[in-house]
């Protein structure tokens, strides 16, 4: 019996998720014993045509990381969907948009102008911008089109399972593959991580008081953080209570607050709204002005509450941006 074939593909991501596979270290050996890798552009020389050549559902599983923001990524998402039995959104970007998802606060034009013209490190007097098509030596060259809107994988194609995290830990990855191979799978659409908030595994948990009342919020660089004590108890916004467990609380263990990359639990529809609700209810101030000055401690609410999840949030994108923008010429 041939080994099940799997594909690994990246869309808009930093490459960290690819790294996570490698980070399985010797664990990867076991994986490779169990499966054949049929497509992994970062590591192995397969072509799109090789995937096309596969029969539909010819792949056992495809792990797609990164958000979807170009026409090519959409195309690849669809292709892999067609060819695989299990499509897995791998990592925060594919699951909920991730850091690239914050581009949903800007129009494509704003982004391009900044990146190709206004950024202080850019020198581009001719104001050259990427083109979807151009002629070079009489040959027509094509580039994918950058979309206006950043999407999660499941906003483009149907997704079977989610492995969250930025990036998912090797342990989660191994467990996910193991679960797939063993066939012991939860219901379709499930997140392959514990359905409980991070505090459950946080080493600082016992130091959290039961009478927390925020007098002020501080950003991590503004304070000398006590490495033992609950970060919220120190006035540092830690998304742990509103974020899934499964990462072994790597950030709080490393003296940094959780920023929410694992996404919400299954019972929460909008992670940012929930964190906001919990956090603000416990502010100690009692009148408008005083409340306002406490809230000033969170200067960027969207970036704080939706760092990894804007495209998957209820509002998805800055609402007053133009819906359509002329395609890049």
């Amino acid at each position: 019996m041939p080994k099940p074939r799997i594909a690994i593909y990246w869309c808009a991501s930093c490459g960290g998720c690819e790294e996570a596979f490698v980070d399985m270290a010797e664990g990867i050996v076991g994986v490779l014993e169990a499966v054949d890798i049929a497509f992994w552009p970062v590591a192995l020389d397969f072509k799109k045509s090789d995937v096309r050549a596969l029969p539909d559902k010819g792949l056992f599983a495809a792990f797609v990381n990164g958000a979807v923001r170009t026409s090519e990524q959409e195309e690849m998402a669809r292709l892999l969907r067609r060819k695989s039995r299990h499509l897995i959104a791998y990592g925060a970007c594919a699951c909920s948009g991730g850091i690239p998802g914050l581009a949903n606060l800007f129009t494509r034009e704003q982004l391009l102008r900044f990146v190709y013209e206004d950024a202080p490190t850019v020198s581009n007097a001719a104001k050259t911008r990427p083109q979807t098509a151009c002629m070079d030596d009489g040959r027509e060259l094509e580039l994918p089109e950058l979309r206006n809107v950043v999407r999660t994988l499941d906003q483009v194609v149907e997704v079977d399972y989610y492995v969250p995290g930025c990036p998912p830990t090797p342990k989660m990855t191994q467990e996910a593959i193991g679960a797939l191979l063993s066939g012991k799978l939860p219901a379709r659409g499930a997140v392959l991580a514990p359905d409980m908030a991070l505090c459950s595994e946080c080493p600082r948990r016992s130091s959290k008081p039961t009478d927390l009342a925020f007098k002020a919020f501080r950003r991590p660089h503004e304070a000398l953080i006590d490495p033992q004590k609950c970060l919220l108890a120190q006035g540092v916004v830690c998304m742990g209570p509103a974020t899934r467990a499964g990462c072994d609380a790597a950030c709080p263990a490393g003296n940094m607050p959780c920023t929410g990359c694992m996404g919400p639990t299954s019972r929460v529809r909008d992670q940012g709204a929930k964190m906001l609700s919990s956090l603000c209810a416990s502010i100690s101030a009692r009148d408008d002005a005083a409340i306002g000055s406490v809230l000033d401690g969170i200067p960027d609410p969207v970036g704080t509450f939706y760092r990894y999840g804007l495209p998957k949030s209820l509002i998805r994108r800055k609402a007053d941006l133009p819906a359509q923008e002329a395609a890049v010429p």
Binding site: M196, A197, C199, L212
Partner: peptide, 21 residues
């Protein structure tokens, strides 16, 4: 119970001290 992470966020919210840890 099986969902609760024990984050204690709810405890100071209750004016009737109905929530304990």
């Amino acid at each position: 119970e099986e969902d609760c992470s024990g984050c204690k966020s709810c405890i100071p919210i209750c004016p009737y001290t109905a929530i304990t840890f």
